[in-house]
């Protein structure tokens, strides 16, 4: 009986501990970062290596990197998800191979994506340190998450749709474009948002692909500094950058929170498991 009481005490203690660490972290960021947050902070260029000024160009670079990542990974991810869910018999060799390879891809550490991105996109394809290289590297990284979520969404679409379409003599492509994809749309949007969230949180894969330059990018072939890289640089390489790093961290967390919350609510509405 006392063992039972001890377990109850310990488990509740853990919950309290985890909760307090979370609020400790959050309070620290808010105390140091909130005074710096203001309208101009979001639009001004960073000055004095980021110690003062804002994060305008960095937000633009981040948005461009994410845009490249999504524009390239979405069609590839959607195609793979549709193939796996609608055009592959369960247990077929091709389907199993694709799934296995995506499982492995999901486990690749982000710094290894950085190495690969640097060797392949920056040097082999000659894109250099650029927003394009960074975005393409992130596209590879988010692909497994994107495919898995989109595939789950398609699988939840009622099987009656497929049967009814077949009974009416609709081709599978027509059933897909007119019935299944529209029906699975919330899940597909959730998949995209989750992928954006994952990509936005990434740092290690970007340091050697999209680089450090904190000027406003002129084109996709310019180097651009992502928000996460900015936080890293400010806290590690710039003495006195902590306040602005806190502010940037608050912006990043807020952004990811919004994206993830929308994704989760869409996914919940569609009853699919999210990570």
């Amino acid at each position: 009986m006392s063992k039972n009481a001890l377990a109850t005490g310990l488990i509740c203690l853990v919950a309290v501990l985890v909760t307090s660490v979370f609020f400790w972290l959050l309070t620290d960021l808010v105390i140091h970062g909130l005074p710096r947050l203001s309208g101009p902070f979001f639009v001004e260029a960073s000055q004095n290596a980021g110690r003062s000024g804002g994060i305008g160009p960095i937000i633009v670079s981040t948005a461009l990197i994410l845009l490249v990542a999504i524009v390239t990974s979405a069609p590839l991810g959607l195609a793979t998800a549709v193939l796996l869910s609608e055009f592959t018999r369960p247990g077929s060799l091709f389907g199993r191979l694709v799934r296995r390879s995506l499982d492995v891809l999901a486990g690749v550490p982000s710094i290894v994506f950085g190495l690969f991105g640097n060797a392949f996109f920056c040097i082999y394809l000659g894109l250099g340190f650029s927003i394009l290289s960074g975005g393409l590297t992130l596209a590879c990284m988010v692909l497994p998450l994107l495919i898995r979520t989109a595939e789950q969404g398609l699988q939840v679409a009622p099987n009656d749709y497929r049967l009814a379409a077949a009974a009416l003599g609709m081709s599978r492509s027509a059933a897909l474009t007119h019935l299944l994809l529209p029906a699975a749309m919330p899940a597909l949007v959730a998949a995209l948002l989750l992928a954006i969230g994952r990509a936005g949180a990434e740092t290690a894969a970007l340091v050697f692909t999209s680089g450090y330059v904190d000027r406003m990018p002129d084109s996709l072939l310019d180097s651009g500094r992502a928000l996460s890289v900015h936080i890293y640089d400010l806290s590690m390489n710039v003495a006195g950058g902590d306040a602005n790093a806190s502010a940037a961290a608050l912006v990043l967390i807020g952004l990811l929170l919004i994206i993830n919350t929308i994704a989760m609510s869409l996914a919940k509405q569609w009853r699919i498991a999210t990570p």
Partner: peptide, 11 residues
């Protein structure tokens, strides 16, 4: 789970 690793590192 959603807090980026760089923020954990910073904290």
């Amino acid at each position: 789970a959603g807090i980026p690793s760089v923020v954990y590192g910073f904290w």
